[in-house]
Design a protein around this nucleic acid. Structure first.
Lengths: 225, 225
DNA sequence: TTCTTCATCCTTGCATGGTAGCATTTTAAT
DNA sequence: ATTAAAATGCTACCATGCAAGGATGAAGAA
């Protein structure tokens, strides 16, 4: 038997990365706020090394900006970066959904069916937190099916600034029923092998989350670049 | 006068990253070869820290694989990853070239004209090394014009495995004249505002570099995943 | 011979302290 | 009072040593 031992044990560095990233995205560390290796290390009771390594990774994603020998600060929300993320997602995900039409098999069919059932269940129950996760999972599955998980990962990493926007408008006016409906139609078009229709629904779907950035920027001016 | 002080001085970490990455892409460190923080640090006469930090970044790009507490090895060429890179590039760059039609201004017009003139010059002179750089620059300019340099960077980082393939077939049978011709037609279509035509040429252009991966894999079996 | 155990030698992970360089404050000179 | 220079304190950068854990091979038992 082949023992995969898929690293259940996360390294201190990875844990720090996850913690800090979550705090940034949840605006717990505010955009523009200074953070230091030393303070964070003390706060989490680890040495500076894993914190520093997490910082470097976060700096790669532009979630923080390191000014060498001076200080490090949480990046303000950069609408140009948000736009780049949107552009990337729109173009890639529309291409993915077309390719997905040729990749669907029984195994993934079941995965999608289960996912959609769970979405429906969550809507009825009103568990929007879990629904959010299922939404992510639905899209991730499309990439996994096409053997494009690395692109998914890259795309997600580029959307961290967008994620902070999402947190800003707490009173999320998502109409989950519409999202679910679109998911269903995307899946139906894939399973019936209609790539053009699937792409069209996906385009509508992705444009649904475009929202009032202008108002948010006026309201939280300090948080923006 | 505003003094930008754009860090002419690279950190030891960044230097190590560049050095190691170049050695990997030029197959100086062979696919599958073990490398250790300590050895590399000794070789370059720096401490383990900057080497380790460079390793972490390279591991992010999947150019090396770190097995914690065991060893680190240069990743073998992964054709799945090459395919993901190709997919990303094809879809994004076709979208970019369409957007570029709306973004061209006098400034960039001159940049492109100069770039193409230089390409022509290099072909006549036979300086294929420089021509390669100008090719990169041509494509980068398209992204820069569209305010999408981050996507360019991501895309490039995903194509490192592909770059190693390029090194493998040293006797590059590029027909540079055709590439130049396509560059010219892309630019002409952009400047005359014909996005569909520009996209079509770009698609042909990107497909031109598809080559005999199968033969290469048979010849250098050990270098592949 | 073959298998098991255990000691040794690797590796990377992490902790710690000193260094270099920027910023701010204090000091001193005009 | 103003300005310049020096001292101080802060930061991230880097060097180094130890710790944790897998790999290897020798030694001993079956």
């Amino acid at each position: 038997m082949h023992k995969d031992r898929t690293h259940v044990q996360l390294s201190a560095r990875d844990k720090m990365y996850e913690h800090i990233k979550n705090r940034i995205i949840n605006l717990d560390y505010e955009p523009g706020e200074k953070i230091s290796e030393k303070d964070v290390a003390l706060h989490y009771n680890v040495s500076k090394t894993p914190v520093r390594e997490a910082f470097l990774k976060l700096a790669e994603e532009e979630l923080i900006k390191i000014y060498p020998q001076r200080y490090t600060a949480v990046s303000k929300i950069d609408l140009d970066l948000v736009e780049e993320g949107r552009f990337l997602r729109e173009n890639i995900e529309c291409a993915i959904v077309k390719e997905a039409c040729n990749k669907l098999n029984d195994d993934y069919f079941m995965h999608f069916e289960l996912n959609l059932k769970l979405q429906q269940f969550c809507i009825e129950k009103g568990s929007y937190q879990e629904l959010f996760g299922l939404d992510e999972e639905f899209h991730r599955l499309l990439f996994e099916m096409c053997n494009k998980l690395r692109i998914w990962k890259l795309m997600r990493s580029m959307n961290s600034h967008f994620d902070r926007l999402r947190v800003l408008r707490l009173a999320s006016n998502h109409d989950w029923k519409i999202l679910f409906d679109q998911h269903t139609r995307i899946f139906d078009n894939i399973s019936s092998g209609q790539p053009e229709k699937a792409e069209k629904v996906m385009l509508d779907h992705l444009n649904l989350v475009h929202f009032e950035t202008k108002e948010l920027k006026e309201q939280y001016l300090d948080y923006f670049e």
